[in-house]
Nucleic acid binder design. Structure first.
Length: 878
RNA sequence: GGGCGCUUAGCUCAGCGGGAGAGCGCUUCCCUUACAAGGAAGAUGUCACAGGUUCAAAUCCUGUAGCGCCCACCA
């Protein structure tokens, strides 16, 4: 424990403080009053993940809210955990096995699973340990993992219920196939990449004719799967071909020529070839005309045995070349053009995705999506910022069945049990499956479990309620579900947010959360996405080492913006570290000047009353902003109250009273200063927990409770005067005098004589009482009211509260001050003219609210006075 | 092609109907014992453009241009 003298000698070093409080900041010791609950499910980071700035941003926002509501007396629940991240994790472990000389393809499913579990046991907590350094008050005791027994139980329960409702079904249809990973993936996992590619045109010979029909394609290798050519029936050039056939020069297949408006006459040659097994649009055409669906690809993306021998086992790209060669050989090649094309790429493998005909599991989400649209439309679930709702609606309106099966092993194995004659039931284990099977089919059969595992997002979509114990109606579930809030990035609105809403409504009948807070991404200083390949990734741990966790948190919370991503430059955190340093040094000053006497707070001085008022004002705004999830606004208020009001004026004024203490008792100010500071630390705590705890500890050494346990009350004010006006007067005169001094190039160290005229007659007494204060703030010999005799020998400045004047001396250059006054005059005249024209406008007088008109009148009056004043000041000088 | 967002000080961005703001940077002065990671005094803007609504527009509406993102399509 630092004693006071140590504290005073220390410089602000975040690391020392943060290490000291690391374990205490994250414990949540607030005094819950059981009146309200607040709960969040943290987006579970991938178990393979490393802490990145996205996590830091996401969890900082949540932690601020969590700490705030906790201080506010709510019982809180913040579920923490990790996601098994199916494909990502399996890939990672397989790679490490290959490095060790083990071929993952040659070991059994069970052995591979064991390797992955071993990896998980060794590395699974890494990401959580990295999160800890951020000082989050979440439940570290019992982190969930999506493959834990209880989570798995939720997943199986969900699957079985959806299966039994008929919403989950198996279907052989065209799906996105990742040829590298050899698994199906969902639409969302396919990303479109713009590439330059070649479009080839060739002519198909029409059967029993000498005519040809020209078609274009970017994928010549698919000609082996062609079953039709579509032409537009209104197309003069092609319509006569309708009903005729083509004899494929590639494999002798018969290709029908069909008339359908699907063919766009403006594109290509106007005739389009149809390859149902390898193109989603063509597949739809095939269904319409009952065409054959011919698969020409192996699972690894090479051409299969259906194609002529010379093309077999070639990669798509190699086959493409050879087919074009062959076209040339037989004289049907027409041309090659370069076109811009988008290619489907698997987001995990980075390889081209092929549409393939496969038997897969699907969740029919159409009706679930409709229900989800309703709860967002009627405001049961609110997005913040609201414009993200449009994005949500857009996707939900054209949602397709969700392909939920993956041909990997790391994940929740699909709880469906098949018999060898194609019957199946969904059940959690073999015993239950047998019972169910008997009941359903009235027969006993040998059953084997489906080999596929579920899409990782399936378990993620249950997260807010599975972590609370669903399907059991646990105490936590009853108390904390629906959760209060979800905080996440816009990039997973479809992957995660939408699916959680759908699943929750379907399975629990409730929304999963009431508010979705969407935040943006953190980019590098050029606005580019951080990525390993670009080498522009900033590690939050490096930032913390250099600037401290508190500075990082304050930076993040200050820079959230609904409309733009956060750009991070090398020195972005400096202002926030400086701010922490400012707080630290203010703490030192207060510590140095505190009085040990615990005497009651007495009557306030005007500045004590003022700072209490400013603090109370801060507290009000702070609460409103946080309750509106606008932490950046709360941050802004915290920053400016402390720096501008508390340090620049209050401490500076108080300091003078301490040094001039011969005339008055300063105990009250000393106590008030410490008191406001401690209240401030209390509300700073959710934003910058470490420095808050360290400083509070220093001032509350004897208190048993070193933590923050509730929000501070408003500070009481015992002062009868108009402290706002009085502080304003002190500020106006001080700034006016300093400005005048500067313009006249009078050294700060020179003590000078100063006179004032006061535009508020009723403040005369106040000014007399506080003249020594202004003398000290401005380094004056004297500060006295001007009498008429001296007026000709003065050089003056105009302030909103009156004029301040120095005695003229011949060796001083007035030009800067004259220019300043002239400039002020111009701007005052502009304001006056604007005001005057408003007030002479009948429309304004009739339509504007009364208070606006009154304010305008007052402004015109004041400005006119100032103009007179400033004119006379100028004339004095010329 | 559909949708969303942005355009305000040199830079990064707040403000979103009634006097143009912050942080950084810049100029000048100051090591005044909380803090030079600081203090003081300053300078800097046709609020993208064009129309409209209004007594009043950076702020609301329409259009244009540029930038960014998402989705879809591509013969």
């Amino acid at each position: 424990m630092t004693d006071s003298s140590d504290f005073l000698s220390q410089k602000y070093t975040p690391k020392t403080i943060e290490d000291k409080w690391a374990n205490q900041v994250i414990a949540n010791d607030s005094l819950a009053n059981d009146e309200a609950c607040y709960s969040i499910a943290i987006p579970p980071p991938n178990v393979t993940g490393n802490l990145h700035l996205g996590h830091a941003l996401n969890t900082t926002i949540q932690d601020i809210l969590m700490k705030f509501y906790s201080l506010n007396g709510a019982e809180t629940s913040w579920s923490l955990g990790t996601d098994h991240a199916g494909i990502a994790t399996q890939l990672l472990v397989e790679k490490s096995l290959i490095k060790k000389g083990v071929n993952p393809k040659e070991i059994s499913r069970e052995d591979l699973l064991q390797h992955i579990w071993k990896w998980k046991a060794e590395n699974g907590e890494d990401i959580l340990n990295q999160l800890k350094i951020l000082g989050l008050s979440c439940n570290w005791e019992d982190p969930k993992f999506t493959l834990d027994e209880d989570m798995t139980n939720s997943v199986e329960e969900a699957f079985i219920r959806l299966y039994d409702k008929g919403l989950i079904y198996q279907e052989k249809t065209l799906i996105n196939w990742d040829t590298k990973l050899k698994t199906a993936i969902s639409d969302l996992e396919v990303i479109s990449e713009n590439r330059k590619s070649s479009m080839f045109s060739f002519k198909y010979p029409v059967k029993d004719s000498t005519s040809f029909i020209t078609v274009s394609t970017t994928r010549p290798e698919t000609v082996f799967g062609d079953v039709a050519v579509i032409v537009n029936p209104n197309d003069e050039i092609h319509k006569n071909f309708v009903g005729k056939e083509i004899l494929s020069p590639f494999n002798g297949n018969i290709i029908k020529i069909i008339g359908d408006e699907y063919a766009d006459m403006t594109k290509g040659s106007g005739a389009v070839k149809i390859t149902p097994a390898h193109d989603f649009n063509d597949y739809e055409i095939a269904k319409k005309y009952d065409l054959a669906v011919i698969n020409i690809l192996n699972d690894d993306g090479t051409l299969n045995d259906y194609v002529p021998e010379q093309f077999r086992n070639l990669s798509v790209l190699k086959a493409r070349e050879k087919v074009v060669e062959y076209m040339n050989e037989i004289g049907i090649f027409v041309k090659e053009e370069k076109v811009n094309n988008t290619i489907p790429i698997g987001d995990r493998s980075g390889e081209v995705v092929e549409p393939l005909l496969k038997n897969q599991w699907f969740l029919d989400v159409k009706e679930m999506a409709n229900k989800s649209l309703n709860v967002v439309q009627d405001g049961t679930v609110k997005f913040k910022p609201k414009f993200w709702e449009n994005t949500f609606f857009e996707w939900m309106n054209k949602i397709q069945p969700w392909c939920i099966s993956r041909q990997i092993i790391w994940g929740h194995r699909i709880p469906v049990w098949h018999s060898d004659d194609g019957k199946s039931v969904a059940a959690k284990n073999l015993t239950m499956a047998k019972q169910k099977f008997l009941k359903k089919y009235n027969e006993e059969k040998e059953l084997f479990q489906d080999n596929d595992v579920l899409d990782t997002w399936f378990s993620s979509s249950l997260w807010p309620f599975s972590t609370l114990g669903w399907p059991e109606e646990t105490a936590e579930y009853k108390k904390y579900f629906p959760t209060s809030l979800l905080v996440t990035g816009f990039d997973i609105i479809f992957f995660w947010v939408a699916r959680m809403i759908m699943m929750s409504l379907e399975l629990t009948g409730k929304v999963p959360f009431k508010v979705v807070y969407i935040h943006n991404l953190i980019r590098d200083k050029k606005g580019q996405k951080m990525s390993k390949t670009m080498g522009n990734v900033v590690d939050p741990l490096d930032l913390i080492a250099e600037y401290g966790t508190d500075a990082l948190r304050f930076f993040l919370s200050s820079n959230i913006s609904p409309h733009s991503d956060i750009k991070l430059s090398p020195n972005s955190l400096e202002p926030y570290k400086n701010f922490m340093n400012k707080i630290w040094n203010a703490g030192k000053f207060i510590d140095l000047n505190k009085e040990d006497s615990q005497s009651q707070l007495g009557n306030d001085s005007f500045y004590d009353a003022w700072i209490s008022y400013r603090f109370n004002n801060l507290l009000d705004k702070y609460k409103v902003h946080i309750e509106n999830c606008e932490v950046e606004k709360a941050s802004y208020e915290l920053y400016h109250f402390f720096w501008d009001d508390f340090c620049d004026w209050y401490i500076e004024i108080a300091k003078i009273s301490f040094t001039n203490s011969k005339n008055s008792n300063t105990t009250n100010t000393r106590n008030n200063m410490k008191d406001i500071f401690c209240r401030y630390l209390n509300i700073l705590y959710p934003f910058a927990p470490y420095i808050s705890l360290e400083l509070k500890d220093n001032f509350d050494k004897d208190s048993i409770n070193k933590k923050f346990t509730s929000l501070p009350e408003k500070s009481t004010i015992e002062y009868t005067g108009d402290f706002q006006k009085e502080v304003q007067l002190v500020k106006d005169f001080t700034i006016g005098i300093r400005s005048l001094r500067k313009n006249l190039l009078i050294k700060p160290s020179d003590k000078i004589v100063c006179f004032y005229t006061n535009s508020n007659n009723n403040m005369n007494e106040f000014l007399l009482e506080n003249k020594t204060l202004i003398e000290s703030l401005c380094n004056l010999v004297s500060f006295t009211e001007l009498d008429n005799d001296t007026s000709s020998d003065l050089i003056s400045n105009l302030t909103p509260s009156g004029t301040v004047s120095f005695l003229k001396s011949s060796d001083v250059d007035f030009s800067t001050q004259i220019n300043k006054l002239k400039k002020d005059l111009v701007s005052l005249e502009r304001i006056y003219n604007l005001s005057k024209s408003k007030l002479s406008n009948k429309g304004f007088l009739d339509s504007a609210p009364e208070n606006v008109v009154e304010e305008e009148k007052a402004k015109a009056y004041d400005t006119a006075e100032s103009i007179d004043d400033i004119k006379s000041l100028i004339s004095q000088l010329s």
